[in-house]
């Protein structure tokens, strides 16, 4: 771990402590669960990263800053993909976003637009 990562993680931890008691954890519905779970990001990071990126996404795209809007867009995004379940369809959509250049940069992370929205929804549900 280099100095910058240490500070980054240390800073997050320090920030998380006073906020810990104030995080509103809304139990997602069965449908919302995969919609709010960006598969790769949750495997390479933790809930804190997903929430942080989600908050950032909603600041950059305030027109999508609510559960209904994000849920609706994600549901439509998944509808065009093939797969046995919603999670698989969303993963396919994320890869297609990368292939077709629908990406964005949040805090330096190069993300598919769909997974960034998933972060956004996660952060709304777990604000």
């Amino acid at each position: 771990m280099d100095r910058r990562q240490f500070l980054e993680l240390g800073g997050t931890s320090a920030l998380a402590l006073p906020l810990a008691g104030s995080i509103a954890w809304i139990e997602p519905t069965d449908e919302q669960r995969p919609l709010a779970r960006p598969d790769m990001l949750t495997r390479v990071g933790d809930h804190g990263l997903t929430r942080r990126l989600g908050r950032r996404y909603r600041r950059v795209f305030p027109e999508e800053n609510d559960t209904a809007t994000l849920t609706g867009i994600l549901r439509r995004s998944a509808a065009g993909e093939e797969g046995p379940d919603l999670s698989t369809k969303l993963t396919a959509r994320v890869r297609r976003d990368f292939a077709e250049g629908r990406t964005l940069n949040l805090d330096g992370w190069v993300l598919a637009r769909t997974e960034a929205r998933q972060c956004g929804l996660f952060s709304v549900l777990h604000s």
Partner: peptide, 18 residues
Amino acid sequence: EAVGQELGRIGLGRVQLM
């Protein structure tokens, strides 16, 4: 950024710019 897109496309992982 383009490396991040390609490695995302092949599902290897995610890239964060310094």
